[in-house]
């Protein structure tokens, strides 16, 4: 098999596992290209950003048609994620690769930890693959690919449907440090961003978190859903399903702002980006279709081990 087809296959595997496990595609693509194909980390990040744009935009289109994503909220927040991504993209070219590798190792370790914790907390025996499907569907707190899986497989519930989490109006939830004294906004513009059954709270927290998500996305080539979804859901009171769908919408412009920097600075090799993006897209489609028939619990635990191993390899690369 030629190297280009190996890249397509590797991208497909990353896309499929991403959509099955609720992992961000970038979390898998960047290590695949750096550790598997020996690409410089910065080049791998550029390629990953293109793949992230393709998969998240495809999913966002489906979510918008079903009116699950909140377009007004997403656009308002992506103004800040895009600004963060622009800064992150420029900073990425000034940082030594070892620093980027260290940051990526931390991201991998955090992802492995959250996956392991989720696996343990949902470790009760189930009736098999069918029972495992909700585990996949609820993994949206971890990031965007679940939405991709849901959207591409046509299983995303529309707003107001069972599972859409829009059944009843609710104020923002208060949890931990995110709990503030004035959760809902009195600003008319922010109030106008609310959905039919929920209000928007702690908008300043959302703004700061969005900038941070944009910087991380640009530095590490990930969608940043791992930050945006909990931010919208826990801090701003957006229902989980809406937060996941809206995060997908935002990822496109966030990744685009930094992908432009990588593209114009020669940081995206089309001979690598083309096969990888096609592979990731096809893999996400396949993963989405297979998700209802696969028990992901064992797959998830195996993947925790792989992620932990990859985190160590990245950390070693950072140390030099």
């Amino acid at each position: 098999m030629t190297v280009d087809l190996v890249l397509v296959a590797g991208g497909a595997a990353a896309g499929a596992f991403g959509s099955l496990l609720g992992l961000g595609g970038g979390v898998l693509i960047v290590p695949l290209l750096t550790l598997g194909f020996g690409l410089p980390l910065r080049e791998a990040v550029g390629v990953s950003l293109v793949s992230v744009i393709v998969t998240s935009s495809a999913a966002a289109g489906v979510y918008l048609e079903r009116h699950v994503a909140n377009l007004r909220l997403g656009m308002t927040l992506e103004l800040f994620t895009a600004a963060g991504a622009l800064v992150g993209g420029l900073v990425a070219f000034a940082l030594p690769e070892r620093v980027l590798a260290g940051l990526f190792a931390a991201l991998l370790a955090y992802t492995a930890f959250t996956m392991a914790r989720r696996g343990l907390s949902r470790g009760a025996p189930s009736a098999g693959p069918a029972a495992a499907a909700p585990v996949v569907a609820s993994a949206g707190t971890a990031g965007d690919p679940t939405a991709i899986a849901d959207a591409l497989s046509g299983e995303a519930p529309a707003a107001g449907e069972p599972g859409g989490e829009d059944a009843a109006p609710r104020p923002p939830r208060r949890r931990g440090w995110l709990a503030g004294s004035s959760p809902t906004s009195s600003m008319p513009f922010v109030a106008s961003l609310a959905g039919p059954d929920y209000v928007i709270g702690r908008f300043p927290v959302g703004v700061i978190g969005s900038v941070f998500a944009g910087v991380i996305s640009a530095l590490l080539g990930v969608g940043g859903g791992i930050i945006k979804v909990p931010l919208m859901n826990l801090a701003m009171g957006v229902p989980l399903r809406v937060a996941t769908a809206t995060s997908n919408l935002m990822i496109g412009i966030t990744a685009s702002a930094s992908a432009i920097v990588y593209f114009l600075r020669g940081g995206i090799d089309p001979y690598v980006a083309g096969p990888t993006a096609v592979g990731v897209f096809l893999g996400a489609l396949a993963g989405a279709r297979a998700a209802p028939r696969i028990d992901v619990r064992i797959l998830r635990l195996l993947f925790v081990v792989v992620l932990a191993y990859t985190a160590v390899q990245m950390a070693l690369r950072a140390i030099g």
Binding site: V3, V54, A58, P270, G274, V278
Partner: peptide, 27 residues
């Protein structure tokens, strides 16, 4: 979004097929 990503994937796929046909080494 659908048309944009559809067009993008179609062009990339053609490019990949031509890469394989002409023996381009991505690395």
């Amino acid at each position: 979004l659908r048309w944009g990503i559809g067009a993008s994937i179609a062009l990339l796929a053609v490019g990949v097929v031509l890469m394989v046909a002409t023996g381009v080494d991505p690395l």
